[in-house]
Simulated assay, not measured.
Amino acid sequence: MHLVPADRADRRTIDGHRVCDAIAAIGDAERVRAWAGRFSLLADANRLALLLALHRTGPLAVSDLAVATGMNDPAVSQALRLLRAAGVVAGEKEGRVVRYRVVDADVRAVLDHC
């Protein structure tokens, strides 16, 4: 059981080799936290709808996303603010219009399966 941390080494296991495999599968705790954060963002139906629209159609403005999702403009803006802060989407300004797109490759890969 070479992968078992010292603070858990004294605990009894049934299938020690599988415990090591499970620890390896979990990997770095920071990576797990990052994915949990991504899943938290995706767990909200409105944010997921926005991401699916952006992923499948390309860059869209807030007002267009509001029409597409049935949300109001302030709700779309708030959701995009959270997604932008997490690095999932980015906005590109063209004159007075900002169009958003999905920039997180891992999130795009998840959205491919939705």
Rank of each mutant, 00 (worst) to 15 (best):
H55P: 06
T69M: 01
I23C: 04
A25Q: 03
N46S: 10
V4F: 06
P5M: 03
D73A: 07
L50E: 04
R99S: 10
L65Y: 05
S77E: 15
H2Q: 13
A79C: 10
V32C: 02
A79I: 01
A6H: 15
R84H: 13
M1G: 10
L50K: 00
L83G: 04
A6T: 15
A29I: 02
L52C: 10
A25L: 02
V67L: 12
V76K: 03
N72I: 15
L82H: 13
H113P: 07
V4Y: 05
A105N: 13
Q78P: 05
C114Q: 13
L54K: 03
H17I: 09
V76L: 09
D112C: 06
A24T: 00
E94A: 08
R38T: 05
L111G: 02
R108I: 02
D112S: 08
V67G: 06
I14L: 14
R8S: 11
H113D: 11
V97L: 12
A43V: 06
R47G: 09
L60C: 12
A29K: 06
L42K: 06
D106C: 09
Q78N: 09
R101Y: 06
A24E: 00
A45T: 10
R11V: 12
A43H: 11
N46H: 11
A36L: 00
A90P: 07
A6D: 15
G70W: 02
V62D: 11
R81C: 06
